[in-house]
């Protein structure tokens, strides 16, 4: 499974960003190969629809779940339609901490 993370910085110890559409980086973690890649968010300064454009962008990487602090309402609707799972951690957590919780 590929999981996308909304991140503030481009490394695995970065905190999960509060806002899915406006974060600086996306981390895409593959649970099979245990490798992560980091993508700069091309839509972070977009005036409108940053979240929905980012969903399409991340879909190209074949993600099945997204971890972020909060999702906008339009993004929630879109992700439900595309059957992608949304994960919201309680409090502030790093990408590494979430990955450690993952079990096959």
């Amino acid at each position: 499974m590929k999981i996308a993370f909304a991140l503030s910085e481009n490394h695995h110890r970065s905190y999960i960003d509060d806002h899915f559409g406006r974060c600086n980086w996306y981390g895409v973690y593959d649970t099979d190969t245990k490798k992560a890649q980091y993508l700069e968010n091309p839509n972070r300064y977009a005036e409108e629809g940053a979240g929905c454009t980012s969903v399409d962008y991340l879909m190209e990487y074949g993600i099945q779940a997204i971890v972020a602090g909060r999702f906008g309402s339009r993004v929630v609707e879109l992700l439900k339609k595309k059957n992608i799972q949304m994960i919201i951690p309680e409090g502030t957590k790093t990408m590494e901490e979430i990955i450690k919780l993952y079990k096959n």
Binding site: K80, M86, E90
Partner: peptide, 17 residues
Amino acid sequence: KISFSVTEKNPHVCPLC
């Protein structure tokens, strides 16, 4: 300590653990 949205595939299983 996470919340997750329910999808058709795995409705009642935590996506992480």
